[in-house]
Design a protein around this nucleic acid. Structure first.
Lengths: 349, 349
DNA sequence: ATGAAAGCGCTAACAC
DNA sequence: GTGTTAGCGCTTTCAT
């Protein structure tokens, strides 16, 4: 296992040590069929003894192919992403693909840098959770390089790319309808940004539900913000300071909903009682928080797996025309929407 | 920008297009000094026109060096990790090093696979947040390959590696002393695992504080568990079901503390009043939760930056003998430890 | 079943 | 300041 730092062991040295040719050694590495059992054993033993480490870059260079896939996420500090990641990882392992993950922190320039690096390393495919305002040109450039891309969650108007998401309009409708059915007429929509396709779609569902019920929307009840706990916390404060606060809030996602509920408690209100809350995603924390969060499940883990599967097919050149996979969300009723008692009293603090 | 999928543009083609030799083109890429301004412009223009993408693998192969660093994290779904990551990224950007991140999900085999992949890609260095029970042999193997490694947070008994962490004993003492000063005699220590060096050290501080105050430790008050919100939630339940529950809890980290406080609320208790809570890390959420969490800051972002700086020095071959950098933690007093009122009433639920 | 040889895209002497 | 050339470690025909 020990060996000189300055000169890494090469396959050729392994081959010599095992008394075979380089190509034979290469065959045993790639699991090729034309190798006798005894040769394979010899080579494997030499590898072990010399502490040989496969040089994947060299292999990729020669074979002009790569089994590594690049993951580009906007952030990672949200159980939603972790679930997505888990689904992707799990599926990709099946195909013996390895993953490198990069975080853009919602910055377009960081995303550019990240993707450039991945391209320079010649990843075999990319799963992209795009930053808002990502130019479509970026994606077409990658595709022109012959590298398959699967888009997650954030879509482009031009649907000529592989995409996997949920039906966000339905998610918005499901959530808002539930709130309306509980007797709420003034419903806020908080968190997320207008640039996000998912935001626009959820808002569409929110609108649809209002229209269908013959309800007006007060546009001051729609407040945008980052998809973080902290932001949910701030946004709820804004909402509560409104001259005429709503009795319910549809939150862009669970993490915002939880931040919002924290603020409610801080200001002496009881979420679910003084204000009804519903989120989107169904992260693990949703069922743990007090009150347990009513939410619309977006099945992140399942979607991650589907995305990985789709990408793998592209990398293997299986299917050809772009696919949009849309998962149907599901309402999960818990405790954060008990029946509306009365109009929320004016802010106390 | 458009070009044929099947044949990526090479530097040679760029050179021809620009009417120079390959080496000249290479020099402009690496910012070498011996290139005239006009040639540089020509080459850059050809690169743009042909849509050339640098092949970093080929370059690394030839130059036997890599400016990519591999990050190995146990998990990523904790604001603590995000802060660490941010610190590392920020610092590494200064040195023009790029990062690939892998998650082990606390699994030894996943960690092995991940590190193998990174090694196969010939990363220039690794920052390792090791899974519990990681054999020291893994690290020495990497080092024998001539690849610098910086350990974060989880230490090995043999201190011959570069390491950056906090003084966990002090963290434990700080937290426990504060609780004792507030009048608590029965203090739980919840979350984390015995295999973690940081756990052992924090427990040591917890013990030290008790001894110094002449207090006994009830070992049934020490309960282990994962470092997640969910786990904190479960653990607190266990604690509350004890025949004689404690009046305070020192939590292995903030995320556990928050989970624990959620359970307290669920069972009708007021954290900070019915039970005092202190955490470790000072994640952003700590100051947002109700009550605001008293905690021991571990300065994750600063530590990340220091780790990155140290690794960079190793990669550039600057310093030689292994360094242990120990950051001193700091007590941050907020609202989760108001004065002890009375012994916690017996569990109600 | 195994070996010889060519070459993937790039860098780094060295020559001019 | 720019060109020539010899590999880096591997895969992959093509022989044998």
């Amino acid at each position: 296992m020990k060996q000189n730092k300055s000169t890494p062991v090469t396959l050729l040295q392994v081959a010599k040590h095992a008394g075979v040719s380089r190509s034979t050694a290469s065959y045993v590495l790639s699991g090729g069929p034309h190798v006798s059992d005894s040769t394979r054993k010899k080579v494997l033993e030499s590898i072990r003894q010399l502490g040989y480490v496969y040089n994947r870059s060299a292999a990729n260079l020669r074979s002009k192919s790569s089994s590594t896939v690049g993951l580009v996420f906007p952030d990672v500090n949200n159980p939603f992403y972790t679930a997505l990641l888990a689904g992707i990882n799990q599926e990709l392992n099946k195909y013996n693909k390895t993953v490198i993950l990069g975080t853009t922190f919602e910055s377009l320039s960081a995303q550019d840098r990240l993707i450039s690096t991945m391209l320079e390393y010649r990843v075999g495919g990319i799963i992209l959770f795009a930053v808002p305002d990502t130019p479509e040109e970026l994606i077409s450039r990658i595709k022109h390089l012959g590298i398959p891309v699967v888009l997650i969650n954030r879509n482009f108007t031009d649907l000529s790319y592989d995409y996997i998401g949920i039906d966000n309009v339905v998610a918005g409708t499901l959530a808002t309808n539930h709130l309306i059915k509980k007797g709420h007429h003034r419903i806020a929509f908080i968190g997320g940004f207008n640039q996000l396709s998912s935001w626009q779609e959820r808002k569409q569902g929110y609108k649809d539900a209002h229209h269908k019920a013959g309800l007006e929307i007060d546009s001051s009840l729609i407040v945008e913000g980052h998809a973080t706990r902290e932001s949910g916390y701030e946004l709820m404060d804004q909402i509560l300071n409104l001259p005429n606060p709503p009795s319910a809030a549809f939150c862009y996602n669970d993490i915002i909903a939880i931040g919002a509920m924290m603020k409610l408690k801080e200001r002496g209100f009881t979420p679910g009682h003084d204000m009804a809350i519903v989120g989107v995603d169904d992260i693990p924390e949703a069922s743990i928080f007090t009150p347990k969060l009513t939410t619309v499940s977006s099945f992140p883990q399942i979607r991650g797996a589907r995305a990985a599967k789709l990408l793998n097919e592209r990398m293997e050149g299986l299917t050809m025309n772009p696919q949009s996979i849309i998962v149907q969300p599901e309402l999960i009723i818990r405790d954060s929407c008990s029946y509306k008692k009365e109009i929320l009293p004016h802010s106390t603090k």
